Computed example of a mutant assay.
Amino acid sequence: MANAKMTETQLAEACGVDAKTVGRWITDPNRIPHARHRWATCEALGEEETALWPNAIRTALTSGPDKEDGIEGRFETGHVNLSVFRFDDEMIVTPILARRVGHDSPMMHLRRRQTDGMFDRFSAHVEELWSRGRDIREVGHDAQA
């Protein structure tokens, strides 16, 4: 909030909640706001959701009503700045741009058309990151995972 030069009251107004609610988000690290409020907060502060609520995505994937057993996810604590969704010979890649939130970054739909093309290069990069990452369902992750 300091970087965005916002008060609790200003953030509350931007998110459509009471200032006391924002105060609870700040003082209780285990409190995860509803998705629409997280998105509004990220937009107002210019921050990524994972920076503000690292456990939000893990919680949604492991306990959400639409949890899929066939979906795998990993957290990488190094320099990633990349979201990837792969489906056989297609993938959706969103490189996160510096000083931008995820929804302000480009999204590329890649298809494997040739050996060592852009798809294969991103695929190799993602495999390297995947091998270093930790499963989102592991118990005992630290808050920054």
Rank of each mutant, 00 (worst) to 15 (best):
T9E: 15
R134Y: 06
E68D: 13
D120C: 07
T9W: 13
V139T: 08
V84C: 14
T21N: 05
M6F: 11
T9V: 14
L82F: 08
K67T: 11
D88A: 15
S105M: 07
S105D: 07
P65N: 06
A4R: 08
S83P: 00
E72V: 08
S63C: 01
R86D: 09
V80S: 06
T9C: 09
V80P: 00
F119G: 00
E72A: 10
K20T: 15
A145F: 09
I26C: 06
E47I: 01
L45S: 07
L97T: 09
A19Y: 10
I32G: 00
R31L: 14
P33I: 02
A56E: 01
I96G: 02
D18H: 15
K67N: 06
H79Y: 13
M108F: 15
L11R: 01
P95C: 11
T59L: 07
S83Q: 15
D120G: 03
T41V: 07
T21R: 00
A4S: 15
A124G: 01
G133E: 05
A2D: 15
R74H: 07
K5C: 13
T94N: 13
Q10M: 14
G46Q: 12
R111M: 05
A56V: 02
T62V: 02
R99Y: 13
M108K: 03
H141F: 13
G102S: 12
E49Y: 03
G140A: 08
V139P: 02
A19D: 10
M118F: 03
R31A: 10
D88T: 13
L82K: 04
D135Y: 11
A19C: 08
D104S: 06
R86K: 15
G16D: 12
R111Y: 04
E13S: 10
K67Y: 10
I71E: 07
P54C: 06
R74A: 05
E90W: 11
R31P: 00
M6D: 07
A51W: 04
R99G: 08
W39T: 06
E49N: 07
T41G: 02
V93C: 05
R121I: 06
G140H: 07
A60L: 08
M91I: 13
E127N: 08
Q10E: 15
H141W: 12
H79E: 14
M118P: 00
E48L: 14
I96S: 03
G64N: 04
V139S: 09
E127M: 05
H109P: 00
D69Q: 10
H103E: 09
A56I: 03
E8V: 08
I71L: 15
E90V: 12
P65E: 08
N55F: 05
A12W: 01
R74N: 03
E48A: 07
L45D: 01
A98K: 14
D135V: 11
A40W: 05
L110D: 01
L82E: 04
A98N: 12
I71C: 07
A2G: 11
I92R: 10
G64E: 06
I96W: 10
